[in-house]
Amino acid sequence: MLFTKPLAVPFTALALALSAPLALPAMAQEATQEAPGPSINDEQLQAFVAALREVDAIEQRYGASLNEADSEEERQAVITEANEAMVSAIEETPGITVQEYLEVLQQAQADPELNARIMEMLQG
């Protein structure tokens, strides 16, 4: 993704995919297989940005724990806990669902203009 923090989005996508092993990858695959995504209005983007800020804060909180984990088991425990927190944060953000969040995230990876709009909103 073109966000200025390159590690944040891949961790988010990975974490979200791991949080619901059956449902989220299927949703992500469906979104990827569709033709170019629908136009995203400013209200949807504002909800996405609000959720992204929450997810980023969660990533920051759990990032150090993940790096300090001594075993794969500890890493998985941290990832699981972070995943649950991220999914909850997205679900609690008005105006967006986890599926919509993933769809916007995927569209932003493929669309530099959408990515630029998101970056502008994050900086504002």
Rank of each mutant, 00 (worst) to 15 (best):
P38F: 00
F3A: 01
N115S: 13
A28D: 11
N83G: 13
N67D: 11
S39H: 12
T97N: 08
P94R: 08
A82T: 04
I118R: 01
I96S: 00
P38K: 15
M86V: 02
A85S: 13
T32K: 13
E43W: 03
S88C: 07
S19V: 04
A116T: 09
Q33R: 14
V49W: 04
E91S: 09
P10Y: 10
E30L: 14
M1I: 05
P94V: 08
I118P: 01
M86K: 11
Q76S: 13
L114I: 07
L2E: 02
L102M: 15
E91G: 00
A50M: 06
Q33E: 14
G37C: 09
P38R: 15
I90P: 03
L102Q: 06
F48P: 05
E72C: 13
Q76H: 12
P112A: 09
I40Y: 04
S39Y: 07
E84F: 06
A82G: 02
A51L: 04
G37S: 10
L18R: 07
K5N: 08
M119E: 10
A13Q: 14
I118A: 06
S65D: 13
P112G: 05
Q46K: 13
L105F: 10
A110E: 09
Q46N: 10
E74V: 03
E30T: 14
P38D: 08
I79Y: 09
E43A: 11
E59Q: 15
L66D: 02
Y101S: 05
A69E: 05
A26N: 07
I40E: 03
L22N: 09
M1H: 06
A64K: 14
L16N: 03
E73R: 14
R53I: 08
Q106I: 02
P94Q: 12
A47R: 00
S71H: 14
A110W: 01
E59M: 14
T4H: 09
P38I: 01
T80L: 12
E103P: 06
A15M: 08
D42T: 05
A26W: 11
L24P: 02
A51Y: 02
V49H: 05
A47V: 01
N115L: 07
P112V: 08
E91I: 06
A64L: 15
A15T: 09
P94K: 09
P6V: 05
E91V: 09
F48V: 03
F48I: 00
L24H: 03
E30K: 15
G124Q: 15
Q46F: 04
E43K: 07
F11P: 03
E120M: 11
A26I: 02
P36Y: 06
E81M: 10
V9Q: 07
E92K: 14
E92A: 15
N115H: 06
A13D: 12
A35R: 14
Q76C: 10
G63W: 13
